[in-house]
């Protein structure tokens, strides 16, 4: 599959009012290779999964998840958060080898 960083899609409003509850949806293109499958020659295909996903808003964790081999390919996370101040929202997907895919969006409070 694609090298790190992996292609991602993030869906969230660019602006919101203080105190609003906003929905954030994320996708990452990742094979989530389980490590249980074998190739045509019978060799185990090494496990390659997103192991940890973390979202920070103004440097504070607002969502985090540990993911394992049972999670399907191209993991989709959707959650909501309460709007405080304007600032960056940072999305970090970390795989087993510690390689990171990082995306940042700015939320502007109106």
């Amino acid at each position: 599959m694609a090298d790190t960083p992996h292609p991602t899609r993030i869906s969230m409003p660019a602006t919101a009012k203080r105190g609003d509850i906003i929905d954030i949806k994320t996708l990452i293109q990742h094979e989530m290779e389980t490590g249980y499958r074998r190739d045509a020659n019978g060799r185990v295909i090494p496990r390659d999964i997103v192991a940890h996903f973390e979202v920070r808003y103004l440097d504070e964790i607002i969502f985090a998840a540990d993911t394992f081999a049972g999670v399907s390919a191209n993991p989709y996370f959707a959650f909501s958060t309460i709007v405080g101040d304007s600032g960056p929202v940072t999305f970090t997907w970390t795989d087993l080898a510690g390689r990171k895919t990082v995306e940042t969006r700015t939320l502007t409070v109106t």
Binding site: P7, T8, R9, S11, K25, L27, I28, Q29, N74, Y76, A78
Partner: peptide
């Protein structure tokens, strides 16, 4: 129906 949730949109982006 939701482009934010449709995993095929990853390929569209590529």
């Amino acid at each position: 129906a939701d482009d934010g949730a449709n995993p095929a949109m990853l390929w569209v982006g590529q």
